[in-house]
């Protein structure tokens, strides 16, 4: 092949590849816009005040008030469980086990838990909480908001562990050395200096975890189950927005589909607003570390 021919061929290959890359990006963005736009359009047209004031027991005439309360309740339970455990586990990884074998193994398994199938985590909580509770109370308490919260905590836990670990590793070691040289014991150093220095990063982790677990449906199906009435008692069966969307989408009634879209809009806005907030926190943190 002549030099000129080779040159032309290379240029054409390059042009094709560049066009493909651009087209792929446009395709990805197209799907994003398609999904968000439809959620917005269908959601807004079904968004009435009754969505937040009426419960699902009224069906097509109702709203999602009990599901919203249930979701908030279970998200809260989940955060109350996974934040302390996650922060402590992450602290152990970063401060006590940075290079040890057990630390490496746990860090590794935490990453696997991060993408483990959420439906299996739901089954797990069903086996260890819902069934035993039902057996102990002879069926009086079975599915519960508490079980749902635990299942969601399992979704959020690895996120918090990972961010805490990473954020603490970013804290300069001179800070540790200075404190240790003054005779500060390790627990005080960790609680009062290191966690404080990494606090904005840890808040980021908690927000990320919330954004992830708030939209989860699969782990709630067999733990919190669902409920058509308003309840905030953690031992009752509890409704949630994602599960209500799931049930309404499965229903043939188009009026319920409209309510499901409104719920979808609410939850999408909540989750996306959280991720934006996280970004804000995160960029500020980067600046303060210089």
């Amino acid at each position: 092949m002549s030099a000129q021919g080779l040159y032309t061929r290379r240029r054409i290959t390059n042009a094709i590849a560049m066009t493909f890359g651009t087209a792929a990006t446009v395709l990805g963005l197209f799907f994003l816009v398609w999904i968000l736009w439809l959620t917005l359009i269908n959601g807004i047209s079904a968004l009435h005040g009754s969505l937040f004031t009426k419960i699902t027991a009224y069906g097509p005439q109702g709203g999602l008030a009990n599901a919203i309360v249930g979701s908030l309740m279970m998200d809260l339970i989940a955060l109350l469980i996974c934040t302390p455990i996650g922060v402590m586990a992450g602290t152990w990884l970063a401060e006590y086990a940075r290079l040890t074998r057990l630390g490496t193994v746990i860090r590794f398994l935490n990453d696997i838990l991060l993408s483990a199938p959420s439906i299996v985590l739901g089954l797990f909580v069903y086996m260890i909480i819902v069934l035993p509770m039902s057996n102990m109370t002879h069926g009086a308490v079975s599915f519960s908001g508490f079980a749902g919260g635990v299942a969601l905590a399992l979704i959020g836990l690895p996120v918090i562990v990972r961010t805490t670990d990473e954020m603490l590793q970013l804290v300069p070691s001179t800070l540790r050395e200075a404190a240790l040289a003054l005779g500060v014991p390790q627990w005080k150093l960790t609680m009062q200096i290191l966690l404080r220095a990494a606090s904005s990063g840890i808040v980021t982790g908690v927000l990320l975890a919330l954004a992830r677990l708030a939209g989860e449906t699969a782990p709630l199906l067999f733990t919190a189950f669902g409920n058509n009435f308003m309840t905030a008692h953690p031992l009752d069966k509890m409704a949630s927005v994602p599960v209500a969307i799931y049930q309404y989408t499965n229903d043939p009634d188009p009026t319920l589909h409209a309510i499901a879209w409104a719920g979808a809009l609410v939850i999408t806005l909540f989750v996306l607003a959280l991720s934006l907030l996280t970004r804000l926190f995160f960029s500020r943190k980067k600046v303060s570390y210089g």
């Binding site: 152990w92 746990i106 260890i128």
Partner: peptide, 30 residues
């Protein structure tokens, strides 16, 4: 205090392991 602190932190980290193991064993049992 350092020993207790360290023990509590380690326990929490081991919970991550327990979650994975528990998910496997409980579904195997079920």
């Amino acid at each position: 205090y350092d020993r207790i602190f360290r023990g509590v932190l380690k326990f929490c980290a081991l919970l991550v392991l327990a979650a994975l193991l528990g998910a496997a064993l409980s579904t195997l049992w079920g």
